[in-house]
Write a protein that binds this DNA or RNA. Structure first.
Lengths: 277, 277
DNA sequence: TTGCTCCTCACGTCACGTGAGGTGGC
DNA sequence: TTGCTCCTCACGTCACGTGAGGTGGC
């Protein structure tokens, strides 16, 4: 039982070094930080000032997020900060990569959160009346289609695939028919972009100009959109507006990235452009 | 052996879903994604379109870095993106925290890399001659001391502890004695700051004004600095300059954050202010 | 006897990847 | 027989943390 004042039991040394007792035992096992002395009778570990120095180096390197394997190599091969430059640069690159991944994840999360939060606000505010308002201009990537309305999902997929990271905001659909058409509807799937980029493949980038519109938010599944259209058209006639094409449907809340969700909670804003006179 | 065209073997389904066969087996074991059918004779797993839908949801949630445990809970409890808001916000916070940690690590790495790289440049450039130059102004946190030069380390620790994250650049020491003093030297340990902040405790923040100096970079251990001083003083006299106080020592490379390093490779720039006339 | 400090050993973490060894049908 | 696809089971990863069960001296 050495009572040498230079030697510290594992508990004392844990206090001094700031490393946990468990960590110290683990480092011993891994050969990273051997006690200065081990009592053969009790197997008690004893540490000294040199151990403290080494413990400090290990702790610093751990703060820089080096793995124990890296640390072992560094302590074996380096004796000067200059020798560390390569390892530091590799570590910097590795962490930069993880941060990059994390940033993408954060952006995706923020997008879903923002859209869902706004949809919740709209749903709660109960703005389900006809409104007359100016719709601001927006840059979109658009994919023109002919067929059934339900196929517009394919159009959005195409746009998303081609334009990837430029996308922002909620998808919308432009309708070029003056009337309802079952099988040969004429429409365009659009997704707003952060900025105007070049058109690619069959995806056309352009600015949708500002328009004065009569709008209505519809809550419910898409097959019931007809009701909202009727209400809008009736109101337009009553107010004496003449309508123009294309009309827009903005999907405030629809099938999401994760869930299809409950169609009863879908929110769609219909925008009918009206004559500015 | 079902040859139902709706059913896919694990290999086929792996292609379809983009999940590895190992991952699919693991998700089965965890109850996260059960095959639509398991052949009792062969234990072969078979998946269908509903499996594909669930696999897609799992893959999306994994991209958002949710744990399998979180995903299981989400799939059990949520059926609409709106139900996900809380989980998304928690996830966002968790990733933001990790990014914050990573950013600190990166900054620490960048600092060491930059300083060491510059020290290496200086050492290689062989600029070990007396120079006459203007030293730019710098904001520093300073701790005044009296005693032995070797104790300046304590001064730097104090400054670092009090000023923490404001620090930048290389530490320096101001000497107020016109001559060498063994035990009662009069000096000030300084570390540059990013910007001027309030003085705290005994750490004084101020701007060191620009000075015209005679400088010399010394390579080697601190006890040998005397040689460099003699060389500088001789040269000052030869050029007819009158010297002023305090003189500065800038530690371009000294004991590092990790290693004490080899004193033979320490680099110290001595700066003697000279009369501007 | 109780409390404290130390010890070893086993197990858990997280989401799989890497084999080893074996089967069944073409 | 060979090759392919599937199966289970065991082990490894990374840096410890969490016990369980035991010891030795005050």
């Amino acid at each position: 039982m050495p009572k040498d004042p230079q030697l510290f039991s594992i508990g004392e040394f844990s206090q001094i070094s700031g490393l946990s007792v468990k960590a110290l035992r683990f480092y011993d096992e891994k050969g990273l930080l051997k006690p200065a002395h081990v009592d053969p009778a009790t197997d008690y570990r004893y540490y000294n000032a040199a151990s403290a120095e080494r413990a400090r180096m290990i702790a610093r390197l751990r703060e820089l997020q080096f793995s124990l394997e890296d640390i072992a190599r560094i302590l074996a091969e380096c004796e000067d900060e200059a020798d560390l430059l390569g390892a530091m640069r590799r570590q910097h690159r590795a962490i930069a990569e993880r941060m990059h991944e994390d940033r993408r994840t954060m952006q995706a999360l923020e997008k879903v959160i923002a859209q869902e939060a706004e949809a919740a606000r709209v749903a709660e505010s109960g703005r389900f009346d006809v409104e007359e308002k100016r719709v601001e201009p927006v840059v979109v990537a658009a994919f023109r289609m002919k067929g059934r309305y339900e196929e517009c999902g394919r159009g959005f997929s195409t746009v998303a695939r081609v334009m990837g990271r430029h996308l922002t905001g909620r998808p919308l659909c432009l309708h070029y028919d003056g009337e309802y058409r079952e099988d040969d509807a004429n429409f365009e799937a659009c997704i707003p972009l952060r900025r105007e980029v070049a058109s690619r493949d069959e995806v056309n980038v352009r600015v949708l100009e500002a328009r004065h519109c009569l709008t209505l938010v519809h809550q419910g599944p898409y097959p019931q959109l007809g009701r909202a259209y009727r209400k809008l058209l009736t109101e337009a006639k009553r107010r004496g507006f003449s309508l123009e094409l294309p009309t827009r449907e903005v999907y405030l809340k629809g099938p999401g990235m994760i869930f299809k969700g409950n169609p009863q909670r879908y929110l769609t804003e219909i925008q009918l452009p009206i004559d500015d006179q």
